[in-house]
Design a protein around this nucleic acid. Sequence first.
RNA 1: GCCGUCUUAGCUCAGUUGGUGGAGCACCCGGCUGUUAACCGGGCGGUCGCCGGUUCGAGUCCGGCAGACGGCGCCA
Length: 445
Amino acid sequence: MSISLGELSMTKKTWTPIEEIFTGKFTEKSVNIRGWIYRTRSSGNIVFMTIRDATGTLQVTIKINNVGEHAFNDAKKALIESSLTITGTIKQDTRAPGGYELLATENQIITFADPFPITKDQSPEYLLDQRHLWLRSQKLTAIMKIRSTVVGAIHDFFRQQGFYEFDAPILQPNQCEGGSTLFEVKYYQDKTYLSQSWQLYAEAGIFSLEKIYNMGPTFRAERSKTSRHLSEFWMAEMEAAWMDLEDIIAIAKDEIRFILTQVLTCNTKELIYLNQDVEKLTRISKADYPVITYTEALEILKDKENLVVEWGKDLRTLEESTLMNHFESPLVVTNYPVDIMAFYKPRDPVHPDTALCFDMIAPGNYGEIIGGSQRSTDIAEMTKRLQDMGESIDNYQWYFDLRRYGSVPHSGYGLGVERVVAWICGTDNIKDTIPFPRTLLRFRP
RNA sequence: GCCGUCUUAGCUCAGUUGGUGGAGCACCCGGCUGUUAACCGGGCGGUCGCCGGUUCGAGUCCGGCAGACGGCGCCA
């Protein structure tokens, strides 16, 4: 028999998070826990359940002589993912996983679950179909905890550095990155697009707040079917007046080190569950990251890998991952050819074929985790490059106004939150780093 | 846009030369007082993606269609 949810909320018990039981401080004491059945098995007059809550899993032993026949039969027939409350004594026992178990004196099923559709064998597609249920898995729980730490760390980092949070519209009339495709949205009698970047609006914000940041959803309708792409992803961006390329590269490195340090502090358990090398991540959290130019990257590829890339072509996935064979930590690559860069990235006056821009590439096969640049202040050159792309200049007059009224040198970058989480967690696919992934071929559930 | 793979039970898969469709898991019933993704016995479960063709006979061979997935390009 189930207890009513109203009745449950009226009970004034103290509930112990499962994680705390493994500190040993509750041993031989009576506790109340609540959660969901992760595994269950029975043998005659004894039922073993693994119970999970948000903090961990614990084996519960239910014996008919301790809880009575009615509660015992409920426990025996409750399927995986049934929710329940249990009272009992914590025992230290080497036979239990983790060395502790709860010997039940009472158990109350809150809701008997239907047969759970996810069993031991699952395909990636099936798990994506059942995403609303697969979120309960230990793997996704671990990743979502790390994601939460990463997002919190980004806010903490910029606020500690004196940045203000500044919001841009999600509905935007113009495109930002050249070549990327936009999601069109009906806007009353008109049409607009989902935000591809916060940046153009951020460039307006720096003239009052000087140092600003933001983190929010970003939408790109690229026809990419890879383990590194999402159609909707979260980007953490910064923009600052008076800063040049060198300044923002230093901030980007500090930001990555700060994120790593926070994750290593808060999520060691999760990193170990995900089979990540904690010592290596600790090393990277304290390291300085190498900075090379695009031209130097081509030389490394040619000299060490015999991989020849024509100067002027962008680094492709193959080249980036080959390059990363030579680096344990993230790598900063600057001065890409100006002709393949977005309209707002300025020419380097010292090396005029290149732009004052950088990418930070993650180790492994996770690709670019940060992209940024100084911002052009040359209205004539930006106008020409926008026209070459077929863009209507009228939409950018407000942006050019920023150069007409007290323009200053300024710079900014964007960090792909999911790519950073994927790299730290070592996931095969970026889809596992966001609760409900949206990709070229999937937008349900 | 280019290249490739897959589609058989609720889930994961096997299915020989073309000859009456199988296993494990899940679920149900029975057994078991220390299990670790428990185990043992039994049961339930199928329009072999769809349409057509070849054949005495097609899950299997051929053609078409549909759907799912992966890689590249592009990007965070």
